[in-house]
Nucleic acid binder design. Structure first.
Ligand code: ZN
Ligand code: ZN
Ligand code: ZN
Ligand code: ZN
Lengths: 131, 131
DNA sequence: GCAATTGATGTAATAACATTACATAACCAC
DNA sequence: GTGGTTATGTAATGTTATTACATCAATTGC
């Protein structure tokens, strides 16, 4: 599916995430958007749901936070497995993709007849600068 | 480090998790242990912190829940990378370990000079029975 | 045009998950 | 037994996410 045009709220949330240095929680996004008329968490969560669905945003499960996708591609096709390094020092998040990991996980899940719907890979630690 | 003897509260939480079919949230554990004198979330979170430290329990980030470790070994050495399949249908969680995944992730993080402290791999989907 | 449907939005209330702060008790070393 | 450390009890608060219900806008079918 091609990404549809974003609504006003979706655009506001997307812009907030795109211009952010690092990941933001839903409530942090809410605070950033109060000047633009946001009043309640649900406005953020609803926009995030769509942006996640379109593949424009990723959720970091270990942080309860969200980041804009940094893939070069146009989001018209599936991401496959997305992985992240997350620096505990500076908060920097780096998204990466690796076919070898994907194939290996696929082989392992196939072996237990498990049907994968979503894969989370998050690596917490320290980046080069913060080591 | 050898696993020290567990305190009363740690034992209660460990037993609750061990005897559970699937993962439990901290508040679910609290409810199960009210008859044994538990009154507040902190009693659960403190016990969980230690059990996580000892490697007897794992936290599932994508569920905000906890499971007893199912590794055969005696927990006297490091787990390495732990991965989970999580069935959305029946809640079944399967823990597994794979050297190939571990080595590949290690190579990828080394390439970005990232120092890994904790790796989360969680695969959501449907098990054979629930497919 | 106008009813019916669908998707998006606004608002309030509540639920679910986790931590801070402070006091007390148990344990161990000396 | 004094002092240091770890474990515990309790209350309050902070953070994250959802439910429920009303309203509004765009689209469709007639
Ligand atoms: Zn991406
Ligand atoms: Zn850093
Ligand atoms: Zn384990
Ligand atoms: Zn299942």
């Amino acid at each position: 599916m091609a990404t549809p045009l974003l609504t006003k709220n979706q655009t506001l949330v997307m812009d907030a995430l795109s211009h952010s240095e690092g990941p933001m929680s839903a409530y942090t996004i809410l605070d950033k958007l109060r000047d633009h008329g946001f009043r309640a968490p649900l406005q953020v969560y609803r926009a995030l749901d769509k942006l996640l669905e379109y593949g424009l945003v990723h959720r970091l499960e270990s942080l309860n936070a969200f980041v804009a996708c940094t893939c070069p591609h146009d989001h018209e096709h599936d991401h496959g497995v997305t992985a992240f390094t997350i620096c505990e020092g500076c908060g920097q998040v780096t998204e990466f993709h690796d076919a070898a990991i994907e194939q290996r996980l696929s082989a392992l899940t196939r072996a237990q007849n498990f049907k994968t719907e979503k894969t989370t890979i998050e690596i917490r630690g320290h980046c080069q600068s913060c080591a």
